[in-house]
Design a binder for these strands. Sequence first.
DNA 1: AAAAAAC
Length: 484
Amino acid sequence: MAAFNEFGLTGPVIRSINNMGFEEATPIQERAIPVALSGQDLIGQAHTGTGKTAAFGIPMVEFFDVDHEQIQGVVLTPTRELAIQVAEELNKIGQFKGIRALPIYGGQDITRQIRALKNRPHIIVATPGRLMDHMRRKTVRLNQVRIVVLDEADEMLNMGFVEDIETILTEVPEERQTLLFSATMPGPIQALARRFMRNPEVIRIEGKQVTVANTEQSYIEVEERQKFDVFCRLLDIQSPDRSIVFGRTKRRVDELFDALTKRGYSAEALHGDLAQSKRDLVMRRFKEGTIEVLVATDVAARGLDISDVTHIYNFDVPQDPESYVHRIGRTGRAGKPGVAITFVTPREIYQLRVIENMTRKKIARMPVPTIKEVIEGQQRLAVDQLLQAVENGDAGNYKTLAEGLLEDNDAVTLLSAALKVLTKETDRTPVTLTEERPLRMRQDKYLSPGKRGYSRNASGKKGPARNSGHSSPRGKSRFGSRSY
DNA sequence: AAAAAAC
């Protein structure tokens, strides 16, 4: 691996990198940074958790003129949480050079954002809808932009987003650099991306598998109605300090969160129907460790870098293989070990094969954990807690109490009682969640590379234009008409 | 076919 001082970066940027504790460049950084610094367009694909943000952030900060107080860079992300996180990291990279990044996203008071824009950020990190709002209000000017980054690029170019991207790009100079990054990049999306890039260099960090090797992947076959009980057993056996469980729909996430809370687990829900203030609060509490189980939709599937998430549970099979890759990529980051367990109903086994086929990795079957294992797990936890307290050596205040107790009781009886008290009794009140319909994954896209289900016209629209409020201000799109 | 993304 290369050291960061091999890229010819200037002092303040090197200092920031050192300050952040980065020592050696990851493979994607090693290959992408020189290309980005040369001014060339770039499609960068690398595994989850391998430092893609710094791979585009370092060249941006290096490249930008701190005295030119205009927006020189735009990073687009698919979720608000990711915009916040990326802006934070860019600010760290820019700290000694004085390059400022500002997150711009929906659900936040717009007048506050307008005030923040008066601080003259060099980079904005935005979700598309709110950025377009600012464009219409003329509160952001994009005519000085030199670099545009699509983070989670395949998602940003998916239907539902691509028209917004197109609109935003109409206000960015054509003489710009366009950088795309993601852990997944389906062929048709990459082809679409080239339409508004200029001779991009494609950098793929090859791995035999798409997923991260240090994450242990398994699945449990279980009937829909047994899922919740089996999930609780797993939580009791594994007792992760910080885990994420993904549900398929917002309602599902709400129900799962309610049920977990009723059983006494420390959980919170995260999905797009919650107020942004609530989303921010949940994220903050999850990061600080107050919440053990984050119950989320795919809003949390991509990009979020939360340290020490050890377990990912797919309560429902993800909608597509890309989603699976990104979801389980919330663990096993920066070389740490991770565990990913997916619940599959008998009717959905085929969907699991589709995922295995795409990731080129077999997902091991795990038997349904038994009550006996749960009890053993909980007892093990009680013993661990006790031994941890011994190791901490801070129970001195209890010695007199203990000696008194030992006068009338024998040690084994006392210790057994202590362990019994420490052992968490699980509430087994039956909980019924609303049944989900089994997933029917689109198969054509993943199983027959020659005949994929993407039938778009030049503008990326499928069928007649919808969502006319998002269309280009010029009426006719320039997207696809650029002559590269 | 769901979620995300503006008010």
